[in-house]
């Protein structure tokens, strides 16, 4: 067994086992942490395929940034785990069946891939060539992607900003309700006091 085969087996094992825990873990914070080894394994598989650029990109964006963002939102939504119920919806069994069927379909498709022999090595200047391609041949996708990142940034900030107006309305409504309640109680107390006074007057 050559070195690549051992490395490949090890990395796929890491990736798939932690991927399994991402979808099966009951505690979603643990699931978010399991995302890190999953994407780390995928990044190392990219490296094994000879693509240093995408190894770095995958490591930075997927293994680093995305689990952190997911953890942030998990903490903000505070619905990590409810002890009284399962984390899977009522169609979970059908989901599993669909996934297994899809896996069978993929495996059947993979059998038809033939047996291509890989080139002995990747081009040494691959990263430079990709960078040049992004600035010449693929300039339009590059610019569109940068615009889309900007749009997503602004959109995410806009969507996730705390809605001060709505919140102040809610607070105002609650305060009004409290004041009304207090007034009612006061009135009730007054009525009771006057009633009592009246009764006392009667008795006297």
């Amino acid at each position: 067994m050559s070195q690549e085969v051992v490395l490949f087996a090890l990395l796929s094992l890491i990736t798939l086992v932690s991927g399994y825990w991402v979808v099966r873990c009951r505690n979603l914070v643990h699931a978010a942490f399991w995302l890190m080894p999953t994407f780390f394994g995928v990044a190392l598989l990219f490296l094994l395929l000879g693509n240093e650029l995408l190894f770095t990109v995958q490591l930075l964006i997927y293994s680093g940034a995305i689990p952190i963002t997911v953890l942030f939102v998990l903490m903000l939504t505070r619905e990590v785990m409810r002890p009284d119920r399962t984390e899977f919806n009522r169609l979970g069994a059908f989901g599993a069946a669909a996934a297994v069927l899809f896996l069978g379909l993929c495996l059947a498709g993979a059998r038809t891939a033939g047996n291509p022999v890989p080139a002995p090595s990747v081009p040494a200047d691959l990263t430079r060539r990709v960078g040049e391609a992004f600035l010449t041949e693929y300039l339009l996708p590059f610019e569109v992607a940068s615009l889309m990142l900007l749009g997503a940034l602004v959109g995410a900030v806009y969507l996730a900003r705390s809605d001060k107006k709505a919140r102040s309305e809610v607070v105002g409504l609650e305060r009004k309700k409290l004041i009304d309640q207090a007034r009612e109680e006061e009135k009730g107390a007054d009525a009771a006091a006057s009633g009592m006074a009246g009764r006392r007057g009667d008795s006297v």
């Binding site: 990736t15 798939l16 991927g19 399994y20 991402v22 979808v23 979603l28 995928v42 619905e79 399962t86 984390e87 899977f88 919806n89 169609l91 979970g92 059908f94 989901g95 599993a96 669909a98 996934a99 297994v100 899809f102 896996l103 993929c106 495996l107 993979a110």
Partner: peptide, 16 residues
Amino acid sequence: AILFSLGLYGVLARRN
């Protein structure tokens, strides 16, 4: 394919 199916299962079966 296995990784994709795991993801598909997560999308279809999770409730959060």
